[in-house]
Each structure stands twice: as C-alpha cells, then as structure tokens.
Design a protein around this nucleic acid. Structure first.
Lengths: 225, 225
DNA sequence: CGGCATCCATTTTGATACTG
DNA sequence: CAGTATCAAAATGGATGCCG
C-alpha cells in the first residue's frame, strides 16, 4: 500500500501517495468531525471491511496523520483522532466537497447511504467567512438520530460531532426534511412552517443562519449542448 | 470508479467516485496547465500505461470533466482539455498540493521524476492573493527545458504551459537551481548572484515576485515528541 | 466491542506487444 | 503518435473465525 508510489517529486503526487488510496480520504472525512471509535468508523464507511480499515488506520498512524487515543472518562474506550497534520487536510477534503456539491449531487440514489454528519461537513464546505464577520455563535444541529454542533467565531468555523456545551441556537430537523433543504426542495422557513423542523434559541443567531451557508445551485456536467 | 462506487450520498464521496481512482487527479493536474496531447500526458505520468491512460481519459470524457479537442493551426493535433467542471477541480488539487508542500516534501528521492510544470502549479498553490492586490503582470518562467507563464490580475492568477504573449518579466533558471529554491537552500537573489538564474523585464514586477508566493516551511509529520 | 488472520472471487493495475 | 489487446500481479470485498 505504500510500495505503490507515483514516484514524482510533486506536492500533489506526494500527498496522494499518502492519502490517495481507496477509502483513505473518506476515513479522514470521518475523523474531521472528531475522534471516532473503530466500530463507528466502520459504520460510516459501509463496504470497508475490518481488515482493510485496520490496515488504513495503521498506515495513517505510521505516517503521522492520525493516532490512537483513549477517550476521556467515563468512556475510556479506544478511539482514533487526527494529528495536526491530519487535521490540516481539512481544506483539501472540503474543497472536494465543495466541488461535489456543485457538480455531483443530484438526486439521492436508492442504494446510497446517508449520515447527517456528512451533511454538516458539507455545510462547512460552503461556509461564507465574510458573512460571519463579527459573529460569535454556537449552533447545535439535531438531524435525525445524530447531533452535531458548529462553533463560529468571526469568520472561523469548527464543526464537531456531539452536542454543544452551551448552544446559542438549536435546530431540530428530520433526515428527510434536511435532504429537502440541500436539494433546494424547500427552505428552512418552509420546513418549520410544515412542522418538519423546529428551532429555538437566540433569534439574531437564527436569522443569520441562512446567510452563513450558501449552498451552490447544482450544475450539470454534461450540458444538453 | 465505474462499478466500484462508495454508494454514499455525500459530496466528498460522490467526488471521489468520479476522480478518486488512481492517476485521475494527477491527470487533472496535468490538464490544469493547459490542453495536452496523449503522449505528453503519458510523459508526465511515468508508470501509467497507454491502456489505463486511454481508459481514464474516456472516463473523464463520459463524465463531462474533459473533452477531446483539436489543437489550433498549425498543430492541428488531437489533444485533451478540461471542461468547466474539470477546471473547477483546480482548487481541490491546489489544496492537496498546499498540504503536500508543508507536510510531505522532504528531499527529492533518487527515483523520483520531476517536471517544472508541477513546480509552477506548486507556486500557484501558495499564491498570496492579498499580496497581489492591485498588481497586473505576466511572468514567464523558463525552468530547465520547460516554459510556463503566470498571468496575475489583482488577486487572481492563471498558470499555463507555454510562453507568454507579452511577458512583463522573464525568469530563467535551471532545474537544479529551481529545486534549490523550493528546498529553501538558497533564495532567488542568491541564485542570480551565483549565475544559476537570471531575470529580465519590469523591475517593479520582479521586486514583487517574492511576496507573491509564500512557500511554507516544511513540517515534520512525526515530531520527535 | 476491537482488531487481526485467512481464504477466495472479483477488479484494478502495470507491462508489453501490436496496429493504423 | 494514438491508441487496442493481452496477461500476470496486486488490491479489494466479503465471509468467517479467533482472541483479549
């Protein structure tokens, strides 16, 4: 797995030598929203067997992109987290996500799995730093079964799995309705209207929510010409 | 990944379904500096056989990321170019390059190939838009056997293979000396001093050159702890 | 639950030879 | 030069069993 190198003295090629194998960037995507346990990682990556997952994790550890940790009490369970180097792959993963939002997200296919955590990372990929100037707020998203939060601090954003300590605003919405948002089927206001979503907390923070994340309108890669 | 898809309704996964296979992102890297012929593509991707290259190109065409063109006269030769969708993968490729410049570029290994075109893309990845505010200039780089140019227009940059029509400044340098620049072995001024490089053209444009591109200092992914 | 080992069917790849 | 055709060597996916 790392004997197969591109053998090019090129920053892109060297990076892909490290994280270009199948599953690796998705593994990093999972870890970008916080440390995860072996089983949870596998749950987020259906199709990846335990053997390959273990091999990939070992590779990331050897290369200094992730490391094994012990979750704080009371969990005390083993888990994996990104190192500083791994964390800094965030911009690259988000750039891929940003492209995908614009050029590759059509209707959800029947066979495709979906986890709200991915969506929050997608949100982060279209975060508008300028629109967040001067804003300092923590949002908690409760989407389907999952809970995530985004901490925004004047142009900077951090999105992590789990509840927030002291959220300024809470958005609760079902998976289906959330997919309707990303698919431009309806707005958040409409979802609230119809009862599919509910919000609470600081009104000012909630008002600014829609400016913060600008979902690109989907484009067709193969125009009818 | 034609049949082998991640099957996730996730922007990152969908993108990797399209361009995550081996060689694909490097192929796009090659095309990001302008249209290329089949043979030139293969030259830039040592190790990629003609069969796989043809398959990858066909895949990119089918997916609307690249298309086959005929070079303008007098060449009139077949070549491949990126579509708008393909072009927009630039930010993602550059993000990977930026990461690699910081975390993965140690000494050049004996077996590694090197092409100046990669370096210019690397330069572009660390282009500082703020430092280019108000600047409008075209630089021509003659590195080893290759010629490339960068057109800078007030925060925007475009880097293409080939000579510029009307360059404001020309930088001529050998491959070895150029690698010394990226490896922080010496500065451009020192290379000029020692006769390894030479510059000509607008003095103002040349003075601003070093502010425009900020090479990150290399970091160790595995600190001695 | 976490994680490694093994066996096996299927894909992907790498290298080379071959054709218009 | 621009590709096709072919075949051997990896990598992957899936099932399964094991051990702490």
């Amino acid at each position: 797995m790392d004997q197969r190198t591109y053998n090019q003295y090129c920053a892109t090629a060297r990076t892909l030598d490290l994280v270009g194998e199948r599953w690796t960037l998705l593994l990093i995507r999972e870890l970008l929203t916080g440390p995860k346990r072996f089983g949870d990682l596998q749950a987020g990556l259906r199709g990846l067997g335990t053997g390959l997952l273990a091999a990939r994790l070992k590779h990331l550890e050897r290369e200094g992109l992730a490391h094994k940790i012990t979750l704080p009490a009371p969990a005390r369970a083993p888990a994996y987290a990104l190192t500083e180097a791994g964390e800094e792959l965030g911009p690259a993963v988000l750039a891929l996500a940003r492209w995908g939002l614009k050029w590759a997200m059509g209707e959800r296919r029947e066979s495709e799995t979906f986890h709200p955590g991915w969506a929050v990372l997608g949100l982060r990929s279209c975060f508008d730093a300028e629109a967040a100037a001067g804003l300092r707020a923590v949002y908690e998203f409760r989407i389907g079964e999952e809970v995530l939060h985004a901490r925004i601090d004047d142009g900077a954003i951090e999105t992590l799995h789990g509840p927030a300590q002291r959220p300024d605003a809470i958005i609760t919405i079902g998976e289906e309705a959330f997919l309707g948002l990303t698919g431009h089927d309806h707005t958040l206001a409409e979802a609230i209207e119809s009862g599919a979503a509910s919000v609470s907390g600081d009104e000012e923070a909630l008002r600014r929510l829609e400016e913060l994340f600008r979902l690109p309108s989907p484009h067709d890669r193969k125009p009818a010409s």
